[in-house]
Design a protein around this nucleic acid. Sequence first.
DNA 1: CTGGATCCAACGCTGGATCCAC
DNA 2: GTGGATCCAGCGTTGGATCCAG
Lengths: 223, 223
Amino acid sequence: MDVAPPKDEPELLTRARALAGLTVGELARRLRQWVPNDPRQTKGLAGQLAERALGATAGSQDEPDFLELGIELKTLPVLPSGQPKESTYVCTLPLQTLADVDFEDSAVWRKLRRVLWLPLEADPSRPLVERAFGSAFLWSPSETELELLRADYEEVAERVLRGAIDTVRGDLGVVLQVRPKAAHGRQRTLAPDGDEGFQWTGPRGFYLRPSFTARLLERAFEP
Amino acid sequence: MDVAPPKDEPELLTRARALAGLTVGELARRLRQWVPNDPRQTKGLAGQLAERALGATAGSQDEPDFLELGIELKTLPVLPSGQPKESTYVCTLPLQTLADVDFEDSAVWRKLRRVLWLPLEADPSRPLVERAFGSAFLWSPSETELELLRADYEEVAERVLRGAIDTVRGDLGVVLQVRPKAAHGRQRTLAPDGDEGFQWTGPRGFYLRPSFTARLLERAFEP
DNA sequence: CTGGATCCAACGCTGGATCCAC
DNA sequence: GTGGATCCAGCGTTGGATCCAG
C-alpha cells in the first residue's frame, strides 16, 4: 500500500489532492493501520499516514520529507471556522550546532522553503477517524513572509549564541515561535553559555503561530 | 526476584560465589526470564542475568556496574581447557570526548580498577542453558598489568588524537585490543581528524585479549 | 488562546558480549 | 586464534504533532 516517492512536484500535488475528502479512518484502513480512540495516543498519526500515502522518505533527519524535491509535508488542523486549530511544528532548535544567525543557513529555512500543506478537519466534537483531509496546496514564503520569518529566527539565534537560552520562551516571535519539544519535562540538553562552554536546558522546537498559517489558508482558498 | 545493591565488597563476593554451580537456565528460571535457543540471540544474556541476580545498578552509563563500590562485573567464558573462549569487552572508545592520553583519566581505568570476574562454562558443544557459572573472584591490576594496560591505552589515545583512527585496528595492543563495536557495519561516528575537525569512522570498543584474562584465571585458581 | 507539557513510533546509541570467516 | 561483524534490551532522541491548565 505504501508508494514510491513522487518524481516531481505536479505528481506530488496530484497525489495529495486525491486525499481530499478521505477521512483519517479510511486512509488508515487502506494502509492497514489501527487508530486508537484516545486523542492523546494519536498525536502525529494523521501526518504519518499522509507521509506513507504520498511516498515520503520516512525518518530522514532534519531534512524535507521529499528530499529530492526539497518539499516538506505539513498537515494543518483546521477548525469549522476555517482557523488553524494549532501551531505548526517546524523543526528542533539546534542548540549545539547553531553556528551563526543567518536564516538562509538554518534548518527552519530548509524546511519552509517549499511546503505542501495538507488541511485536516479538526472539529473537536468528532473523533479523529471521522475527520477528512482537505485540498492540499503548495506554498513558498512571499517576500514579506520571508522577512517576518527571518527577523524572528535571527532574534532567537542571537539569544542562543549569546547564552541567553533562558529568555527564549513561547512569548518570543511574531510568526515563528519557540516552545518546549520533548517526550517529558525532565528531558535535558545542552545550549551555549555565551562563553565557550555549555549550559543545561530543556529541548525546544520552532513552531509557526496559528495567525501565520491562517493567512496561508486564506490566500490558498480565497484568491 | 531482583535484589538491592550489595552494601560492601564482601557482601557482593558472597552473593557472586553463591552463583557457582548454577546453570544459566536455572538462574534465568529464578529471574523468570526466557532463554532463546539460537546462540546469536543470547549474546550478553548471561552477563545481564548475573547483573540482576547481584543487584547491579542497570543501565548506568560508562560507569562501573556497582557504582557505590567502584566495582565492574564481567562474566568470563571459559573453555573446558581452562582458557578464556573470547576476549572481554571493556568499554567504548570515546572518540569525540577523548581529551588527553592519560590512562588514569580514562574510562578503561575506571572500569578495570576493580573487577568482579564471574567465570562461565563455555563448552561449545553444550547449549547455553546448561552451562554453569564458576567461582567469582575480585581483581585489581598488579603493577605489571597496570603498565601493560597503560602502554596499550596511551598508544591508542595518541593515535586517535593525532587523527590516525584508521590505524587503530585489532592488531594493535599487547593486552588491550580495539575492535569494532556496533549493531552493524553501516554504523558511523565521528573521530578527530588531527586538525580541529572530525572525520567519519566506525565505532570501536576496548577489549582485553584472551591471553591477558588467562593469566588472571591462573592466578585466581592456582595460587 | 497562549504557551508549557506531553504522546507515539522509529531509529540510534550503549552496555551486555559472542559469532564466525579466514 | 584473530579480528572484523554482528545480536538483543533498554533507554534516549527526533520527527510526527496535539493536549490541556490557567
